[in-house]
């Protein structure tokens, strides 16, 4: 039974949210754990983080726009038991503190006072933004997997897959946007950027493999066993109507090809630009595939019932309005 309630905005939002959260999480990890004390790290990562804010913001716009009542989106923050509620909170934390952190790097003269003041809170802000980002990354998977009604989502593999994918795409995004404005173009920044670039490159090589493994494990395990509904979806992915999209698009172009480029075309444009772009596209495609795999186990006869209902454009629905008599 297909549920047509969440469509492309949600898929895009999950992708963008994971991407943005992942960038902040990686930035915080790099700054605090990998290169502690080297302030240049944050500087070269300021632009990717700005992109992360844009991504998250765009994601939020899509999410709010998808609401039935966008103007009261603030209601989303109310209830503790809700995954969405926590998602909204961590996303806000990530974006707000990430934005403050980013402001502190803005090099405009007239802004220097404010930036200087904000610079005091850099570590604090980045810590919160990174933590928030990490939570967002986790949340995007948990968000779907907590909905037990949808057996293709309700698997622990999904948060793992989304987390890996989010970090992988974050790596890819950072590698193609690192070191730009507002980082000053100096030898030092170039070196730091290059070091991070190499590091993330290595990490992404591993992440893509992991993602491939987890994805295949998840899909193929549904294909083998799994309940009827998930099995049906898995068949659609593997040898059904989406097989080309899955094997060629997702596995081939989204994971295997960039992996090959990463490994065998090191140093070329193919590895540093084409592969990350493919990873990003693959990540986005993954979210679409998963979100559109929202089959719910039907009640007996439910498919037949809804199949016979008219679509909302049927003429008889719009022909008459009560209160407006014709004759």
């Amino acid at each position: 039974m297909r549920h047509h309630y969440w469509e492309w905005p949600i898929a895009t939002y999950l992708f963008l949210g994971g991407l943005g959260g992942g960038i902040f999480a990686l930035t915080a990890i790099l700054q605090f754990f990998v290169f502690p004390g080297i302030t240049m790290v944050s500087e070269v990562l300021a632009w990717p983080c700005f992109l992360a804010i844009v991504f998250c913001g765009l994601g939020c716009v899509l999410l709010v726009g998808e609401l039935g009542q966008p103007l009261v989106f603030y209601r989303a923050f109310i209830k503790n038991t809700s995954v969405i509620c926590w998602g909204a909170r961590v996303l806000s934390v990530c974006m707000i503190f990430g934005f403050i952190w980013f402001l502190s790097y803005i090099p405009w003269d007239w802004f220097s006072g404010i930036a200087g003041f904000l610079a005091i809170f850099r570590d604090f802000c980045l810590a919160l933004a990174g933590l928030g980002g990490a939570c967002v990354v986790l949340y995007t998977g948990i968000f779907l997997s907590s909905l037990k009604a949808h057996s293709f989502w309700a698997t622990p593999a999904l948060p793992v897959l989304f987390t890996i994918s989010a970090l992988s795409t974050a790596c890819a995004c950072i590698t193609i946007s690192i070191g730009w404005w507002p980082a000053e173009l100096t030898l030092n920044t170039l070196i730091v950027a290059e070091v991070i670039h190499e590091l993330l490159h290595e990490i992404d090589v591993i992440l893509v493999v992991c993602e491939l493994v987890v994805l295949l494990v998840m899909v193929l395990s549904f294909l083998g066993a799994g309940n009827v509904t998930a099995n049906k979806v898995a068949h659609r992915w593997v040898n059904g109507s989406w097989a080309a999209l899955f094997w060629v698009g997702m596995i081939g172009l989204g994971l295997v090809l960039p992996e090959i480029l990463y490994v065998f075309a090191g140093g070329t444009l193919a590895s540093s630009v084409v592969a990350p772009v493919l990873v990003l596209a693959g990540g986005c495609l993954l979210r679409f595939l998963v979100v559109y795999s929202d089959e719910r186990a039907p009640l007996p006869g439910e498919d037949l019932f809804y199949e016979k209902l008219p679509d909302n454009k049927a003429p008889f629905i719009h022909k008459w309005t009560y209160g407006k008599n014709i004759f």
Binding site: K319, W320, T321, Y322, G323, K324, N325, I326, F327
Partner: peptide, 9 residues
């Protein structure tokens, strides 16, 4: 009773 397509006149 109140259907807009009813003939009323």
């Amino acid at each position: 009773l109140n259907h807009p397509a009813r003939v009323n006149h």
